[in-house]
């Protein structure tokens, strides 16, 4: 699990409210699962509290990288009493198999869950080979 503790208000970051300013950045690896589909794989990633515009998905060769920023729901005049190491950001890096075509990645965000569908390369899909007549 990747985890970093940094102050939120760095040189290139502006915090909108006191609750964010006082809270250290906690980056965690989100819960995720993978499963095979008829044409490739499906990856389900839990990203509670993240809106679509705060997700960054990048692919490079066989590597898939997902970074997401959780929306801070706390109001400026709220004071944190306790939490269970609730994340402020999520980061997930996956190394996928070469038979998957990352250019076919389709993403959907619903109920705090990001679902990615990735198809195999056309040449990797099972195909029937016919025997020609002599």
């Amino acid at each position: 699990m990747n985890q970093e503790n940094q102050t939120c208000c760095g040189n290139d970051t502006q915090c909108e409210n006191t609750a964010q300013a006082d809270r250290p950045q906690i980056i965690v690896k989100p819960a995720f699962s993978t499963s095979k589909t008829q044409t490739g794989v499906k990856i389900i990633i839990d990203l509670p509290g993240v809106s679509k515009d705060k997700i960054n998905i990048k692919s490079e060769e066989t590597r898939l990288s997902i970074k997401a920023e959780k929306t801070e729901l706390a109001q400026p005049d709220w004071q944190l009493i306790s939490d269970s190491d609730i994340a402020t950001d999520y980061e997930l890096n996956l190394e996928l198999t070469a038979d998957l075509d990352l250019s076919t990645t389709a993403a959907k965000l619903e109920k705090g869950v990001l679902t990615l569908g990735i198809n195999k390369h056309e040449k990797s899909l099972p195909r029937e080979i016919t025997i020609s007549d002599e």
């Binding site: 839990d46 729901l73 706390a74 109001q75 709220w78 004071q79 269970s84 609730i86 705090g112």
Partner: peptide, 20 residues
């Protein structure tokens, strides 16, 4: 389940992660 408890001017706020 990840959760956070806040004190607010009106009382308290509880936040629980329930994805899916």
């Amino acid at each position: 389940e990840k959760h956070a408890l806040y004190s607010t001017p009106q009382g308290w706020a509880l936040r629980v992660d329930l994805p899916g």
